[in-house]
Amino acid sequence: MSTPLLEATGLFKSYPAVKVLKNVNLTVAGGDTFAIIGPNGAGKTTLFKVLSGELFPDSGQVAHEGRDVTTVPAWQRVRLGFGRSFQVARVFSDLTTEDNVVVSVEAHRRNAGLGQRRPLAWAPTAEVREGVMETLREVGLVDKRRVVARLLSHGDKKRLELAMCLALQPKILMLDEPTAGMSPADRKSATELLAMVKERHGMTIVLTEHDMDVVFGLATKVAVLHYGEIVAQGAPDAVRKDPLVRDIYLGHGGAGAGHA
């Protein structure tokens, strides 16, 4: 078997008052769309932070292509090909939509060693502007490129954040609840956008969701997190049929148990 792209072994993480992650193990292979699902409070965001380097675990290991990256800080993991979005979209709210992506493209080009050819020019180079337009076109924000990000709708902020991640040309795209707080219609278009992105770039995606139905069209592999423990992991259909999972999602309060 080849080395997995991302592997977590025996992760534990506590906050002063709560034990959040309890012996989490998971394996993401290259090309997977890996969905971590679980009700609110299960520890998905915490797991995400540990995987992406925002937090370090109390014990356990995170490995990237076989290399231990447990305590590698976030900005260095980005250079290894991690691109991450936040549950509540975080964009640079006083910059325009366009400039948010400019900053991202320039950060990527700098890290990838693609030098600027005109050292004294201050405006973004033609290559940067091209990359920005292409990314904005992909997420459908070209018309709003001059809008100050603070004034964007919730859904558009999520799109912008996705654009910022895509600008980094990540090998692993990590999305924390990419459809959180969206209307069903927005949710559908966001899911379609993700499917399209996946098809075009073929990168590995790791995402979290509290709503099981969203991920089943998208995911190639699903892990169910329940009170900080992975209770099921595998192909979507197998996981959906798992009695324990059915119990968690259908047992208490029906299909909507996971909704906030």
Binding site: S52, E54, P73, A74, W75, Q76, V78, R79, G83, R84, F86, R90, V91, F92, S93, D94, L95, D99, V102, V103, S104, E106, A107, H108, R110, N111, Q116, W122, P124, M164, L168
Partner: peptide
């Protein structure tokens, strides 16, 4: 470009870190 990075950091240093 450096000034744009400064402004990004001014607004959200953590987000900036996640851009590498």
């Amino acid at each position: 470009r450096v000034g744009r990075v400064f402004r990004a950091i001014q607004q959200d240093p953590e987000r900036a870190a996640f851009l590498g």
